[in-house]
Design a protein around this nucleic acid. Sequence first.
DNA 1: CTGTTAGCGCCTTCAG
DNA 2: CTGAAGGCGCTAACAG
Lengths: 359, 359
Amino acid sequence: MKSGTGGVPGFCKEKGYRMPATIKDIKEETGLSLATISKYLNGGNVLPRNKELIEAAVKKLHYEVNEIARGLVTNSTRTIGVSVFDITDMFCSMILHRIGLELGKLGYGVLIVDSSEDPERERNNIRFLVNKKVDGILCIPAATNSYVLKSAFDAEIPVVLIDRQFRDRSLDGVTVNNREAAAGAVNYLINRGHKKIAVISGSEESTSRERFRGYRDAMEDAELAMPKEYVMNTGTATTKYGYTAMQELLKLDDRPTAVLCTNYGINLGVVMALNEAQVSYPEDISVVGFDNLLLSNVLKTRLTVVEQPMERFGQKGVEILMQRIREKKEKKGINEEGHINVILSTHLFEGDSVRDLNS
Amino acid sequence: MKSGTGGVPGFCKEKGYRMPATIKDIKEETGLSLATISKYLNGGNVLPRNKELIEAAVKKLHYEVNEIARGLVTNSTRTIGVSVFDITDMFCSMILHRIGLELGKLGYGVLIVDSSEDPERERNNIRFLVNKKVDGILCIPAATNSYVLKSAFDAEIPVVLIDRQFRDRSLDGVTVNNREAAAGAVNYLINRGHKKIAVISGSEESTSRERFRGYRDAMEDAELAMPKEYVMNTGTATTKYGYTAMQELLKLDDRPTAVLCTNYGINLGVVMALNEAQVSYPEDISVVGFDNLLLSNVLKTRLTVVEQPMERFGQKGVEILMQRIREKKEKKGINEEGHINVILSTHLFEGDSVRDLNS
DNA sequence: CTGTTAGCGCCTTCAG
DNA sequence: CTGAAGGCGCTAACAG
């Protein structure tokens, strides 16, 4: 038996405990009809007197809309799902933070799921979001293949990728000029007289791969050698890989004079390995990394890094997603053609981790 | 018009685009009744032949349960809300990660919301969770007062606090022995000959306050002076406060020989200030902190810190919450008496940031 | 084991 | 501006 039919408002004898107030309780309390109340609750116009009646009842009964019921009928939840490859990754959490702010402004709720770098889990998480009927999905994927998003495609839920793209197909997304940025960073080293430049890069995600290409571009343009001992691009772009790869580099008889790290995790691993081996930078080896997240502030020697416009990822991602959601509602269908891909530009932050060999 | 009544499965003429398949579509496809299908979908027993029929239809129509509709009738969403004070805080994200894993095992979904250190936002976030009808809430609060959880209390949704407690009332929660741990850290310094020991601590959250008390306990026991210039406990426990407070300490004519940082953010700020001022530790000043999160691995000199059992926070929190949810279902009401408060114990990790003045 | 019948709480036509 | 009725997709009794 529902609370609305009981005696004491909000109390249900049969269940023996309080049930949340419903719109029907408001009806009993005010004598108005469900429709009127619903209308007012959704911003419609009602007589001033009725408005007061309803407001009083809402306050008295602690009424809160049941988003579940509302979602069922409107088939829209005003909630966006956000799936990230690893919630403990600073890059992800910064973007999550931003997305939350951005979406909050628009009156949307956010449903965050964490894949923990596991594509299978990611696939399930996306299904979870789909079943929760989110209005759209933002995704920083762990997987390199779009199959993880299949359920979202089937349900025709708009998806926007952030930072990364898939290998098998390209989708709406916002990325940075990874290839250029990496090339720029390498050129920065070259201009400072470095010739023996190593790279540590993941092999999976699109970002790592693009950045590696940028490294190669710059090295080839400058006609510098890329001995395979200097090219560490077979692991996943994690702190652990950065750490072991750097250890390998340090073992070489002919050490590089500089190393490019293609993401934040690798930056961390490299710094760890250097500290542990008592190798100082930039004195013994120069380091250029990606992302300026907290780390740089804590290190004695600030890292020179490619800075990404962290805020804009979230901002732009939300913008595109909202556009797609609007389109879907209006045109009653998703436009399969023409993916939007916003490419943000990066900036090289000059820290103190690069030695100028010319001077 | 719903899809189930149309011709082509999953296609609705009137709307002009595909609608997700419903249980009714499965009914049309298989000729079975709604109840049978629903039963099978929820793990019930049906004839093998029907089972196959249903599975085939599910596959063919890409059927996925509509959790919204299910939630409406079961009044339970198999979803837990998790509210954190700052999603970019490593402490939070570690715990979120763990909670996700733990809850995933139990077949629960997770709805994460981020307060960005803003109590008002936190209150709204909790309301959001309540309206989303989560079955329970885990919270690492930003606020120091329980009013932010009012909507959850009104809706009688079980809440378990993690790490922090409120000032105005105590709730189910899992914390660590903050006071003891801090006292232990200070004693560690005292045993190594330190007498001039400063502390940098937040003034708001329960953890900071408890840790500060622990500092005071140890200092009083050892009958050591606590000049007010050494006691920095008026800010919020952030990196920024750690940074400025450490700068203040460095300005003193009579500098402390050691400093206790009462959380991870403060650790970071202190290290930043020391690096910037070219003050080295432990040579010039000894440092003891809280939490061994990533940072410690990256620093040249590993910090000596109180380690908290990060995994257990999430684990125990989930455990308590599940118990409460079970109780609520069985006893049809929340037991107001007797809060569960699990207190985990900590461990002092010996890095290289403390100098032994005895030797 | 299966099918029928009621709703869950809300929004949205349509009359009035 | 208001009210009555129908239905969103699913589950929970029952009855067969």
